[in-house]
């Protein structure tokens, strides 16, 4: 609602910034869409983490080592993760191009982070890789909290493994899944460092998400007032997404039963 810059006192601006944002700013819409796309990495990561959690929850040998290996990507600094993946994706010296060419899966090197088509999927893969270990730990804790007698009773009643998973495991894992979903959503809204390091939002806004756009508007274009308006929109959007996610997971998902 104010016009402001570090060098000038603020003046009342009404809804000018919101008018600009909603009716004239294509990059805002692009970055909003990219945020939604980036958010889609959360269900992918949760699905993958659930599969891994189920695997390391079985009585396989060395499962502790597997758990540690899968979890190890999470405590890494996001900037370091970004640099590692940038190197992996590099067109000239990247390991991924080397492997693809060696296996004859491609004839030409792919500029993963410099192409419109590949930049966003490449960043999503890195984001999933980093978070999957953390989700696995949450889901594993959820799995281990399910009383084994429920599964045993269902098995005695003749329920197949798939039926037991669908009707017992999955519903009882709902709070853990909701927690992962919320962490994933918040992460995708605040995942500034990974995108900034890997692509800087480019090429041509292909990986620009709201949070990187807010930074660009504030500190590159020096439009702090406009960046503040964008931040309000981001906040409202986050509220809506949280409400929708809560509704989708049963309305009371994640709530603690005080009577227990």
């Amino acid at each position: 609602m104010q016009s402001w810059s570090p060098f000038k006192p603020s003046t009342f601006a009404g809804l000018t910034h919101y008018q600009e944002l909603f009716f004239y700013d294509e990059v805002f819409w692009k970055s909003l869409w990219n945020t939604v796309v980036f958010m889609s990495s959360s269900p992918i990561a949760i699905g993958l983490a659930l599969a891994l959690a189920l695997l390391v929850d079985t009585r396989i040998r060395g499962r502790g080592v597997y758990r540690a290996i899968i979890f190890i990507s999470y405590p890494l600094m996001t900037v370091a993760v970004g640099i590692i993946w940038r190197w992996l994706y590099d067109e000239k010296v990247g390991l991924i191009n080397y492997v693809l060419l060696s296996l004859h899966l491609t004839q030409r090197r792919i500029a993963f982070l410099d192409s419109y088509e590949w930049a966003m999927p490449s960043v999503v893969v890195a984001a999933v890789w980093q978070i999957v270990g953390f989700f696995m730990v949450i889901l594993l804790a959820g799995l281990q909290n399910i009383p084994p007698n429920l599964e045993e009773a269902a098995a005695l009643d003749g329920a197949s493994a798939g039926q037991r998973f669908r009707h017992i495991t999955l519903p009882l894992l709902r709070p853990a899944i909701f927690l992962c979903l919320m962490i994933g959503v918040i992460n995708s809204f605040t995942s500034f460092d990974l995108i900034y390091v890997m692509t800087g939002g480019g090429p041509n806004y292909a990986t620009e998400v709201l949070i990187t756009y807010i930074y660009r508007v504030a500190f590159v274009l020096s439009k702090f007032d406009y960046a503040a308006a964008l931040t309000i929109v981001l906040f409202v959007f986050l509220l809506i997404v949280t409400a929708v996610a809560n509704r989708l997971t049963g309305g009371e998902a994640g709530a603690v039963d005080a009577a227990e």
Partner: peptide
């Protein structure tokens, strides 16, 4: 293409190669 997408390091690396 790096001419239009890279910043400083990437184009320099490409020419240095």
């Amino acid at each position: 293409k790096i001419a239009w997408t890279g910043r400083w390091v990437e184009p320099n690396n490409a020419f240095a190669s």
